[in-house]
Measured scan of single mutants.
Amino acid sequence: EETGVRVELAEEDDGEKIAIKLWLRIEDIKKLKGKYKDNEAIEFSFDLERDVPEDVAQEMVESGYVCEGDHKTMAKAIKDRVSLIKRK
Rank of each mutant, 00 (worst) to 15 (best):
E1D: 10
T3I: 00
G4N: 07
G4Q: 04
G4P: 05
V5D: 05
V5W: 13
R6S: 08
R6W: 05
R6E: 02
R6Y: 05
V7A: 03
V7P: 04
E8F: 01
E8D: 13
E8C: 04
L9I: 10
A10L: 09
E11T: 03
E11N: 07
E12W: 03
D13Q: 11
D14N: 10
D14R: 06
G15I: 04
G15T: 07
G15Q: 10
E16V: 09
E16R: 12
K17M: 07
K17F: 01
K17W: 02
I18C: 14
I20D: 06
I20A: 05
I20V: 14
K21I: 02
K21N: 09
K21D: 03
L22D: 06
L22Y: 04
L22G: 13
L22T: 04
W23H: 15
W23I: 15
W23P: 11
L24K: 13
L24S: 11
L24A: 12
R25D: 09
R25G: 07
I26Y: 11
I26W: 05
I26P: 14
I26D: 14
I26E: 13
E27D: 14
D28L: 02
D28S: 08
D28Y: 06
D28A: 04
K30H: 10
K30C: 09
K31S: 07
K31V: 06
K31G: 12
L32Y: 06
K33N: 10
K33A: 07
G34N: 02
G34S: 03
G34W: 04
G34T: 04
K35F: 08
K35A: 10
K37N: 12
K37W: 00
K37V: 08
K37I: 08
K37Y: 06
K37R: 12
D38F: 07
D38I: 12
D38C: 11
D38K: 15
D38M: 12
N39F: 05
N39W: 05
E40P: 09
E40Y: 14
A41I: 15
A41E: 11
I42C: 02
I42Y: 08
I42Q: 01
I42F: 11
I42L: 09
E43L: 13
S45F: 13
S45A: 11
F46I: 02
F46G: 01
D47M: 00
D47N: 13
D47T: 01
L48C: 06
E49F: 04
R50K: 14
R50S: 12
D51I: 01
D51T: 02
D51P: 01
V52C: 13
V52H: 14
V52G: 03
V52M: 09
V52A: 12
V52I: 13
P53Q: 00
P53H: 01
P53T: 02
E54F: 02
E54H: 02
E54L: 02
E54Q: 05
E54Y: 01
E54R: 02
V56R: 02
V56Q: 00
V56M: 05
A57T: 05
A57C: 07
A57H: 05
Q58A: 12
E59C: 11
M60Q: 00
M60V: 00
M60H: 01
V61C: 04
V61H: 01
V61N: 00
V61W: 02
E62Y: 07
E62S: 12
E62F: 05
E62K: 14
E62R: 13
S63C: 12
S63R: 14
S63P: 01
G64N: 02
G64D: 02
Y65G: 02
C67L: 04
E68G: 09
E68H: 07
E68V: 07
E68D: 09
E68C: 05
G69W: 07
G69E: 15
D70T: 01
D70E: 05
H71A: 14
K72I: 10
K72F: 09
K72P: 12
K72Y: 11
T73G: 05
T73A: 13
T73F: 08
T73W: 11
M74N: 00
M74V: 15
A75F: 03
A75S: 10
A75W: 01
K76N: 11
A77H: 09
A77T: 04
I78V: 04
I78N: 02
K79D: 10
D80S: 07
D80A: 08
R81Q: 11
R81F: 12
R81Y: 12
V82K: 00
V82F: 01
V82D: 04
S83E: 15
L84C: 12
I85E: 05
I85S: 00
I85K: 01
I85C: 06
K86H: 08
K86S: 07
